[in-house]
Design a protein around this nucleic acid. Structure first.
Length: 439
DNA sequence: TCTGGGGTCCTAGGACCC
DNA sequence: TCTGGGGTCCTAGGACCC
């Protein structure tokens, strides 16, 4: 019924489904709090901006990213709650379980979105592809108490276009012969994979709609764009190019942490403390996943939203901030400019490898290492039982809002530490770990 | 959208080597 | 001394996604 003929030369035409949760976080909240149904529900309290808004809230003019103080003005009776990822993850898990009842070819694209490939299921199920999607959607909605929108077409990109077409609770089929009709009404920048930069370039070339883009010949696309856009162009033309990634991803290539602070600051030590806090948080996450980093990226975001970035490879993979502090300060020193206003800092741990694969160099004192491992194991344990940020290094104290008396005691200027290099580590290791204070 | 946080992948260009 | 061609690795940065 999709009228799919094979344009890719040989392989069977695909039937790809994209399922997209409608206002997912807010819907989960309404499903777990039935008394909130029909009301404006907002998640994201912890961030100060809207993460997700229920359709009732959207109808009153609130959207993702709106500051919460604006929300309160627009919708005084809005229900504003912090995001509860554990609950949303449970809903997500069950949504994918339902999809897997139909096929094992499921890609968990994000917490609230997934693709599946139902090619060939029409015969054994004795119904059309559209009917299969309808059943899948109905099962999710009735069992979870949330709504989802679905798209059905012959490539991932087109299925995604479809699921966005009608929301909430839509089901959109884009048959091969109907592709151009759909794409004609779609601004080019709305296509999955074509962002603001590509959209801007397209406009410059006189291509305003997705159809304008898709209708160009391959030579033109290859001449004016790079590979990712060319791949999207293929997908829009019904040529499956992005495979379904059905492997469950349980690891990371990189782990980043960044934080904005207001007001912006020119204070060197304050900005560095923010950076160090990010490093500690990134390392905590890495250790939780038993990963160690071989590279470290540091960036400072200026008032004008430009980034100053620098990075370095590490001698040995690690997830211990203590081992990274000197490097961090060095990187920081190379990008920090005095009298410049900064509004955010960030670190990224890159080249992550499993912790147990980390080889100690023969020059590394193993006793020292074991001590450090024990210290961080203790800190992680403490964090698990007493709350996430009960321990942190003294230099990051400024970023944790620590009382001045602890700062006075613990915040040793780096200039002094620099001269004590060999000494520093041992001194740190002998110090007791104090809950709520500095190490 | 006067702008939060966490990711992935691609590409251009320089350094270095033969 | 204005000087070929090609490969590889790395970095910086762009672009895009949720």
């Amino acid at each position: 019924m999709l009228g799919m003929t094979d344009a890719s030369g040989g392989a069977a035409p695909r039937a790809i489904v994209h399922i997209d949760g409608d206002a997912f976080f807010a819907s989960c909240e309404q499903a777990t709090h039935p008394e909130w149904r029909g009301r404006a529900v907002i998640t994201g309290k912890e961030r100060g901006i809207v993460s997700a808004a229920s359709y009732e809230a959207k109808a009153r003019g609130v959207s993702r990213g709106t500051p919460l103080w604006d929300v309160k003005k627009i919708i005084p009776d809005a229900i504003i709650v912090p995001s509860d990822y554990e609950t949303y993850s449970l809903f997500s898990k069950r949504m994918f379980e339902i999809m897997r009842r139909f096929t094992s070819e499921v890609e968990e694209y994000s917490i609230d979105e997934g693709f599946c490939d139902i090619t060939g299921l029409d015969r054994p199920m004795g119904c059309s592809y559209e009917e299969i999607v309808r059943r899948m959607k109905r099962a999710i909605e009735s069992e979870l108490g949330i709504t989802v929108s679905a798209g059905l077409s012959c490539t991932k990109t087109l299925a995604k276009v479809g699921s966005k077409w009608k929301k909430p609770s839509g089901l959109t089929v884009i048959p091969r012969e109907g592709i151009s009709k759909f794409l004609s009404a779609l601004p080019v920048g709305k296509v999955w994979g074509l962002g603001p930069a590509t959209a801007h370039r397209c406009i410059g070339l006189g291509l305003a709609t997705a159809q304008d883009f898709a209708a160009q010949d391959e030579k033109f696309i290859r001449c004016h764009f790079a590979r990712p856009q060319w791949e999207t162009w293929r997908e829009l033309n019904g040529l499956p190019t992005f495979p379904l990634e059905t492997e469950l991803k349980d690891t990371y290539n990189s782990i980043g942490k960044s934080r904005t602070f207001t007001p912006p600051s020119t204070d060197r030590e304050f900005v560095f403390a923010q950076l160090l806090k990010n490093l500690e948080n990134a390392c905590i996450k890495a250790r939780r996943h038993h990963l160690a980093a071989r590279g470290l990226v540091v960036y400072l975001r200026r008032q004008d939203f430009r980034h100053d970035v620098t990075e370095t490879a590490l001698d040995r993979a690690t997830a211990f901030p203590m081992e990274l502090t000197a490097t961090l300060r060095q990187l920081f020193g190379s990008v920090y400019r005095p009298r410049t206003e900064y509004r955010a800092t960030g670190v990224v741990l890159t080249g992550l490898v499993p912790q147990d694969a980390v080889q100690l160099s023969i020059f590394e004192p193993p006793a020292e290492m074991r001590k450090m491992e024990k210290l961080y194991a203790a800190m992680d344990q403490l964090a698990a039982t007493m709350g996430k940020h009960c321990v942190f290094s003294a230099a990051a104290a400024a970023a944790h809002g620590t009382p001045q008396h602890i700062l006075d005691r613990g915040n040793v200027p780096q200039r002094k530490l620099g001269r004590l290099k060999g000494e520093t580590r041992r001194r740190h290791l002998r110090l007791p770990v104090m809950p709520g204070g500095a190490v």
